[in-house]
Amino acid sequence: MTETLKQKVLPVLTIVAAIGVIWYGFTVYLNAPWQIDQYEKSATEWSMNDLVRDTMAHDRPVLPAPHQVVVEIWKTTVQKKITSKRSLIYHSWITLSSTLLGFVMGTFTGMMLAIFIVENRAMDKSLMPWIITSQTVPILAIAPMIIVVLNAVGLSGLLPKALISTYLSFFPIAVGMVKGLRSPDPMLIDLMRTYNTSRWQLFFALRLPSSVPYLFTSMKIAIAISLVGAIVGELPTGAVAGLGARLLSGSYYGQTIQIWSALLTAATLAALLVIAVNIAAQITQRMMGVPK
């Protein structure tokens, strides 16, 4: 136990602490010019201590200090009612729901595509290059337009945002699943042939089980990217609800603390989602009897 502590936890904590120190340093450095300007306007005497204290207490700092962001998050999560429009939990839930819907749809689409590609050579040759090309379309960049257009057709609310997430998340799933479905050792496939298995028996008994580890690795990427899609999808809705809307309204009104608190919340959400997929992967693998 102490060994893992030394090998894993200690280095990570050191780096996190170093990032914190650098962040505080930059807070003082970036906010100082404005603060010094203020001192000179009011002709007050100031020492280095005053400067450090005051740069960390701006209402709209260039870079907020970490504790300011933490206080803001605390205020907008614990001290607000969940139903309040100012509660970050409310906004997170909006973003999370479209993330999950998009992720589920993307995973399903990706798996279906992968199955078609592996089972039919014509599909492989025609689809695979286009699947790669599809990701060079900067979908995040045109997400606002797609949302507006889908709204005009009558699709509004959760689904348009989820579709952006779907478009982003099907790609890692499809690519990973194709790799996974093709991963069985040729020896094993030959063995199945000697058993006179049908195509579908081969698929369900050998290909599908061997693709599971690849699927979960892809799902970790896909769920993180779904969250990004949902956040960007919220930008054009006129800053109504969701973490993306918080980012946008923060940038309209120069509320930097609000931007950073939304960013940190999104980061926490991403971490929780990836951890959830990880746990699901471990449970599945244990049920499938994969040795650690």
Binding site: P11, I15, L248, T256, W260, L263, A267
Partner: peptide
């Protein structure tokens, strides 16, 4: 340093970094 930065780098790669655009 490597042991510390690798997990953190992996974590940050998964974040919606695009959110720093307004900043």
């Amino acid at each position: 340093l490597r042991r510390g930065l690798l997990p953190i780098g992996n974590f940050i790669s998964a974040l919606p970094i695009i959110g720093v655009a307004p900043i």
